[in-house]
């Protein structure tokens, strides 16, 4: 049960194949084995949202997912989402509105926000706050984050996106 297992998956569009211990979490795999440091470890039990990423297009917690579960899967992290430009407007709005201070929660926060805007193009402030209820931020008090997401939605709406 503890012998390394080869896992083959796609991370941010690149094929990856590595031997991993069965106990290795996806977030530790990304950080330690692949060197993708943008996904952060906060609570290690699925509460804080710092390790939020996408697995086969679905938002998951990297600390509650094992790397060996990801055989054949597609993983997207903050690095991949940044390179593709998929949420550039959202990232720009976070900077403009100062919706981040220490930045440790920010990659996970952005992943959650991006998911919301894909599902609901014009969410209310209450819906935004509800979506973020699994992402802990100690610095901002959340209002600036809600503002940034709301503004992004409005601007996308104006552009007909």
């Amino acid at each position: 049960m503890t012998a390394p297992i080869i896992v083959t998956l796609t991370v941010n569009g690149e094929p990856v194949s590595q031997a991993v211990e069965p106990r290795l979490t996806l977030v530790d795999f990304l950080r330690e084995a692949i060197g993708l440091k943008g996904t952060h470890v906060g609570c290690e039990h699925g509460v804080c949202g710092a390790c939020t990423l996408r697995l086969d297009g679905v938002t998951v917690r990297g600390c509650l997912t094992l790397a060996v579960q990801c055989e054949g899967a597609t993983v997207e992290t903050i690095e991949g989402m940044t390179e593709s430009g998929a949420m550039k407007d959202l990232q720009d709005e976070f900077v403009e509105r100062n919706a981040l201070q220490c930045g440790y929660c920010t990659p996970g926060m952005l992943m959650s926000a991006a998911e919301l805007l894909e599902r609901n193009a014009m969410p209310s402030r209450e819906e935004i706050r509800e979506q973020l209820s699994g992402n802990y931020c100690r610095c901002t008090g959340y209002q600036a984050i809600v503002d940034a997401i709301e503004t992004t939605a409005r601007k996308r709406g104006a552009l007909g996106r």
């Binding site: 993708l36 943008g38 996904t39 992290t77 990232q91 981040l100 930045g103 920010t106 952005l110």
Partner: peptide
């Protein structure tokens, strides 16, 4: 803040 928002912090 830009590098923090892109997962490029250290």
């Amino acid at each position: 803040a830009k590098r923090l928002a892109q997962g490029r912090a250290t």
